[in-house]
Design a protein around this nucleic acid. Structure first.
Lengths: 113, 113
DNA sequence: GAATTGTACTGTGTGACATACACTATGCGG
DNA sequence: CCGCATAGTGTATGTCACACAGTACAATTC
C-alpha cells in the first residue's frame, strides 16, 4: 500500500531516468571505469544501481557512443570507458535537447497560462 | 537497421520521458481538457501522443495528483482535469528534484573533471 | 582469517511510453 | 446532404529500460 512518500519516490525515480544517459555520457568525456564512474555520478547527485549502469554502458558501447578497454591498473583488471567521437557529437545534440526540454518545463510551470 | 538519426531519436525520446509528468502537472494548475492540454504541451515544445497522454492522466488521477470532471461545454462533452492539493504539493517537490537533476547534469557536462 | 571495500556483472519483473487503431460528434464546403 | 477536416476521448499491444536482488572474486585491513 503506497503512501505519499512512496508515490513521490516513484515519480522521482521516473524523473531521473532520462537524465542518466546524459549524465553517463557527460562523465565519460574523461576516461573512467565502472566503479569510479558510479562514484562520480553519485557525487554529482545522480546515484545509479550497478544493475542499471553496466547494461547501460554496454548498450551505449553497442550503439557506438563509447569505447571500452580492459586494462590492468593498481594490480586489478578494470574496464575503462571513454566517449567516442560519435558519442561526443550525440552528447552535444542531447544537451541541446535537454535545454529545450528545460525551457518547456519552465514555460509550463513558472507561468500560469 | 538504425542509422545515426534513429539512434538520436531514440535517445531523445528517452530523455523526454521523465519530463512528461512534470509538464502535465504544471499545465494542469489551470483546468484543461485532454485536447487542449495536448495542444498546450505541443506548443510548449513537448508533443505527446494521445495513447501516452490519456493513460498518464488516468494514472495521475488514480494516484490522487489530479481530479477530473465530465462536463458539457460548447455542445460537446469533455473531461476536464485539474491539479489536486496533493498534486500541487508533489509538483513542488518534483520541481525541486528537477532543478537538482539539472544542476547535476551541468556539473557533469560543463566541466571536465 | 574475517570483515570490508573494490570491481564487474546477470536475471527477472514491472512499468511506461510509442505506435497504431477505434470510435463519435461537429462544422463546413460544394 | 454528403464528404472531409477537425475536435475529442479513448484502447491494445509491443518494446525497452531500469530497479532490485543477486553472484562472483580480488585486495586490503584488522
Amino acid at each position: 500500500m503506497p503512501n505519499d512518500d512512496d508515490l513521490f519516490e516513484k515519480l522521482r525515480i521516473e524523473l531521473r531516468r532520462g537524465s542518466l544517459i546524459l549524465a553517463v555520457l557527460g562523465a565519460l568525456r574523461v576516461e573512467r571505469y565502472g566503479y569510479t564512474l558510479r562514484a562520480s555520478l553519485e557525487e554529482a547527485g545522480l546515484p545509479i544501481e550497478e544493475g542499471a549502469l553496466y547494461p547501460l554502458l554496454r548498450r551505449l558501447e553497442a550503439q557506438g557512443l563509447l569505447t571500452s578497454e580492459w586494462r590492468e591498473e593498481g594490480k586489478r583488471n578494470k574496464r575503462f570507458y571513454r566517449l567516442s567521437a560519435d558519442g561526443t557529437r550525440v552528447l552535444g545534440q542531447l544537451l541541446e535537447e535537454w535545454n529545450s526540454i528545460s525551457d518547456s518545463i519552465l514555460r509550463l510551470t513558472e507561468r500560469k497560462q
